[in-house]
């Protein structure tokens, strides 16, 4: 949790997004079913899960763009269903596959939303210029958006959030359909937002990306949050342990030696002189020390960081197939 100085209504320790028992029903089918959520200021929070698991609906409820069937929610201390304008003034939203008016230029598109935000002319021009610069779109500012690539459109969407000076940036599938380089650039820009103390909420199914930039993640399944926390915590919870260290070394009684390292839960001998250790923390220094202690020669020492993908796969694997079908 960051300790950014802030002049806004909510003190840092109070969650900027708070939900209890949040539910959205279509007919008798609950798309979002009793979600509890607390997101702290300055956090990068990831919403993960298969399509149709309720991520976008949760985001739309947060912005007052769809009704809340039951439960309570507050965003920056406001009720999005009753005070949507106050919420929407402070929250920036980049929808899934964002669209712009193709016949207008990048600047004109931002000018339109800037006017809707109620920015005065001079302020608007200044903010647009700054936002386009930060999004790396200065050169194409006066080109029509029709000529823009997918990545440029996403960046223009982010420029809109920058222009808004949003306290919370809500990004729905921001990197889907981007090429690797555009994805890198985009993730870098999200990092910049975080550095400014902006709370970022993003939904995605690009697990490795989410893992790289998110402080905490929540796993959605059929309208429920089934897992929530930092990735290493989840790894311990789902995979049993967080770190898998492989050692390739010669040495007498090395396997026993490795098993004695505190935090190691299991040592598996893969072949002669190759061991796989499962541990709660990164035990590479201890493993190296153990090899030196038995006077062995260390050939390779590698660690598999707990991957979100492994957690995700394992979690959905363990569930009965019926649940997964319902979610899809």
């Amino acid at each position: 949790m960051s300790e950014q100085p802030t002049e806004t209504r909510t003190p840092p320790q109070v969650p900027v997004i708070h939900a209890r028992g949040l539910t959205r029903c279509y007919g008798d089918r609950a798309v979002v079913d009793g979600i509890d959520l607390d997101i702290a200021r300055g956090e990068v929070f990831g919403l993960l899960g298969p399509n149709g698991a309720g991520k976008t609906t949760t985001i739309l409820m947060m912005l007052g763009l769809t009704e809340i069937s039951s439960g309570e929610m507050s965003v920056l201390g406001f009720n999005p269903a009753r005070e949507p304008l106050k919420v929407k003034r402070r929250v920036g939203y980049l929808p899934d596959a964002v669209g712009f008016y193709d016949q207008l230029t990048a600047t004109e598109n931002l000018a339109y939303t800037g006017k809707l935000m109620g920015l005065a002319r001079a302020e608007r021009a200044r903010r647009i210029e700054q936002a386009l610069w930060r999004a790396g779109l200065t050169e194409v500012a006066s080109k029509r958006v029709a000529t823009f690539s997918r990545g440029m459109r996403q960046r223009l969407g982010l420029a809109e959030i920058i222009m808004k000076r949003a306290e919370i940036a809500v990004l729905d599938e921001p990197t889907s359909g981007l090429d690797p380089q555009a994805t890198q650039e985009f993730l870098g820009m999200i990092g910049e937002l975080k550095a400014e103390g902006i709370t970022v909420l993003l939904s995605s199914h690009m697990l490795d990306q989410v893992q790289r930039i998110c402080d905490r993640v929540s796993l959605f399944r059929a309208g429920h949050i089934v897992l929530m926390g930092a990735v290493p915590e989840l790894a311990v919870k789902v995979l049993g342990a967080g770190f898998v260290v492989e050692v390739e070394a010669e040495g007498l009684g090395l396997a026993r030696r490795l098993a004695m390292i505190p935090g190691v839960t299991h040592v598996e001998t893969l072949s002669v002189n190759r061991f796989r250790m499962t541990a709660e923390r990164d035990v590479r220094p201890d493993a190296a020390r153990a090899v030196v202690a038995v006077d062995g020669s260390l050939r390779r020492l590698s660690v598999d960081e707990p991957s979100l993908e492994a957690i995700y796969t394992r979690y959905f694997q363990d569930l009965p197939a019926g649940g997964a079908r319902h979610a899809a």
Binding site: L65, L85, Y93, G99, F100, L116, M117, G157, E160
Partner: peptide
């Protein structure tokens, strides 16, 4: 269809 609706409605207007 242009996918501009949710972006516009996310601005402080009804």
């Amino acid at each position: 269809n242009r996918r501009t609706l949710s972006r516009i409605l996310a601005q402080p207007i009804y």
